[in-house]
Amino acid sequence: MPADGYGISTGKPTTRPSGQFPFEPPEHFPHASREAVAVEFDRFVDQADDLVESEQLFYLLAGFVSNFGYRWIAYSPLTPDQESLGAVSRDHVSFLNFPQEWQERYAEMGYDRIDPVVKISRKREGAFRWSEVYNDASTSEKERKVLDEAATFGLRSAVSVPLHGPDANFAILSFAQPQDCECQNKTVAYLQCSALHFHLKITELGRPKARWTGNSLSSREKECILWAARGKSSWETGMILGISANTVNFHIKNVMRKLDAASRTLAAVKAISLGLIAL
């Protein structure tokens, strides 16, 4: 079976899509003693309880799960009537640091509409390996294609944790790594516990205030929002830049999140007023 993989590209805000963390990951302990792992988990919980910034909490979680070899994280809340990851409510906080190339490919191909991990997450209570999704009899060949292609971008082994809440709302927190390996049951348990604590803490912190600076916009995001400000459609912008309309929409949605704008028009106005682009 091909190595498993998966990616999401939505939410507010997107945290460090390049996948780089502001710390050196500690040495991971796949064969460490039970006591050592327990100590690290206790430290994660204690430090998380003292944090007041959602980004700090994300980095703390990233540091803990890197002990198990997981370098990529994706966290996205969904609403009961939301059928894909492509239209997350602005009232929800989403984080991901999956490779930028995969995020763009995922958006361009519209994989959010056929992502099998979302389908399985709605039915499952506990954490699961993506290899289980790939081998599930209900997973179609189109859905397996998403997993196959994600593996080519380096997401080769992973675990997802469905986080079900009141009023049928739920979130998915996924951990991925580039190595081909089967996650041990003990590791899955720690990932699930840390995911639950992260989710509860994020909910407690509520919606963060916008803290983005001009440097937070990538050159491609600036190009896309500039042409939007000049009145070009996503299709027209794509023709100008040599990319697809889906990719243009992906970058504009990122700008909207970063500038806390409800529409592309408002995002363009904010970008101009902040001096990020010039007509």
Rank of each mutant, 00 (worst) to 15 (best):
S76C: 13
Y70V: 06
S76E: 07
W102E: 10
L85G: 03
S66K: 08
A62T: 10
E55S: 14
P80K: 09
S89D: 15
Y70P: 02
R71A: 12
L78V: 14
Q100R: 08
Y70I: 05
A48Q: 05
W102D: 05
L78T: 08
A87G: 05
E83P: 02
V88H: 06
A62S: 15
Q47H: 05
E83W: 08
H92V: 05
L78G: 01
N97Q: 13
Q56C: 07
V65A: 03
N67E: 06
A74E: 11
G63N: 11
L51I: 02
A87F: 04
Q100M: 12
G63D: 09
E101D: 14
L85E: 07
F95R: 10
R71Q: 12
A62L: 04
S84Y: 00
Q82I: 07
T79W: 07
N97L: 01
S89T: 08
S94K: 12
F95S: 01
Y59E: 13
Q103S: 10
S66G: 05
Q56F: 03
A48W: 04
S89G: 15
R90K: 11
G63F: 02
Y59K: 03
W102V: 12
L57A: 00
Q47D: 03
D50P: 06
A87P: 03
A74P: 07
V65H: 00
Y70T: 01
R71G: 06
Q47G: 00
D49F: 05
L51K: 01
S84M: 03
D49W: 08
S66N: 05
E83S: 14
E55Q: 14
F95W: 13
S76T: 15
Q82E: 14
S84A: 09
W72H: 15
G86Q: 10
P77Q: 05
E101H: 10
L60Q: 01
N97M: 12
L96C: 08
T79K: 12
S84L: 04
W72L: 12
E53P: 00
H92A: 10
S54D: 06
S94C: 15
R90Q: 09
Y70Q: 09
N97E: 07
